[in-house]
Design a protein around this nucleic acid. Structure first.
Lengths: 215, 215
DNA sequence: GACATACTAGAACGAGATTCTAGAAAGTTG
DNA sequence: CAACTTTCTAGAATCTCGTTCTAGTATGTC
């Protein structure tokens, strides 16, 4: 089917490589092309409704090639998911670590969250759609990431809790209290049930977050 | 394959019908058997990993029969999803409508939510897993349900907002502020990342909800 | 310049969702 | 109750993918 677009036996990558090109280079390029194409498809139609053929077509890659670099269609979805989640998490954590008071820290979590999802709508939509069926390995990885995030966030908060500037509640309730509302609102927005972007309402949700955990 | 379990040409429904049995009766019975079987499978393994054969086997129904009553495997998932969501919503709304003060009303939403998910873990897990790929029709129906719920909840709140007992904020931010945290916590609990059941922490989240919207 | 490794291509395979064909039960009408 | 229609059941046949397999082609190394 896509044989028509292949004009010769020369690899199509030749035209993309600007330098003589190490193999590693073109490999990385192809992997990325596949990931980009997959995100576009997944965000538009969901993982299940996207066929491998859709991805190979958009990425301009053969079936064999795709399977040489990835385990399975779902493996691509998992890789994207973990990559997106990590990006979101580290954005939040990075900003939090530059804060110097309990209030700005708590607010920063919400603000960063709102800004990120508004700026990365395609990835956010993919993450929220939740149609990635996680393998045990990916599930474990996600749990590890979530645990690390919770721990890092909680450690940051700990000193303020100790000083009595923040409430003392079970460790795993901080994140739901702080980011639950903005996440819930974001889900509505992504599914088209809410009009205003999370970024437009970030102040409201940031205030609410601080209000929920301050003493 | 399942021919082994079919002992004769007599319909297996005969043994189930206690009355002479109208057709509508046995039809409803079969539909429900399929839905029950599907929920069990979906909750255990997810929609994608469940085969139609799994469902027909557990429900003791033939392929043709199943497809006579449902469009597709995904159609079954959609029906279950909407049914579960409706149950959850009406539970919340019913309880809210029996409340006589802003504070008890707001708290009741959270309490009901926590109790329902803790009591209906299988359905809750299915709803939260989010692995139902919604058709346009189902998406529309969900939007309609969500809109109705938001409106009903907001109408209830409206009088207290007018009296100045509750904050005046955009209509579609009340639900995220009130139930966002408990929902977020529930998601963690269902995926095994949090230990205590939502019901065990309901008071904490109910207080937080009231705190978030009171004046 | 021969061998190894990394990669690409697309055909073949197999699992499983959906459709099709045949026929049985229930309901209706005379 | 006999003829006829409609609803429902059964399971085989089909068709759509995801994945694997076979046959290569480039790149790098000695």
């Amino acid at each position: 089917m896509s044989a028509k677009t292949r004009e010769s036996t020369k690899p199509m990558l030749a035209s993309i490589k600007e330098h003589p090109g190490k193999r590693a280079d073109s490999t990385a390029r192809l992997r990325q092309r596949v990931l980009d194409a997959a995100l576009t498809c997944f965000a538009a139609a969901g993982v299940e409704a996207t066929s491998v053929a859709d991805i190979t077509r958009l990425a301009n890659v053969s079936t064999g090639s795709l399977y040489h670099h990835f385990d399975s269609k779902n493996g691509i979805a998992e890789a994207l998911y973990l990559q997106g989640l990590d990006q979101l998490n580290s954005g939040v954590l990075g900003r939090l670590n530059r804060c110097r008071s309990a209030r700005t820290g708590v607010r920063s979590v919400v603000l960063q969250y709102a800004e990120w999802v508004s700026a990365n709508r395609e990835m956010a939509g993919f993450l929220y759609a939740g149609d990635v069926v996680m393998s045990d390995a990916a599930r474990l990885e996600r749990k590890r990431m979530y645990g690390r995030q919770i721990r890092a966030v909680f450690e940051w908060f700990a000193r303020y809790v100790a000083r009595g500037e923040m409430r003392h509640i079970p460790a795993d309730t901080y994140v739901p209290l702080i980011s639950g509302p903005i996440q819930e609102y974001t889900a509505r927005w992504l599914s088209g049930d809410a009009q205003r972007s999370p970024a437009a309402l970030k102040a409201l949700f940031a205030d609410a977050a601080w209000n929920a955990v301050k003493t």
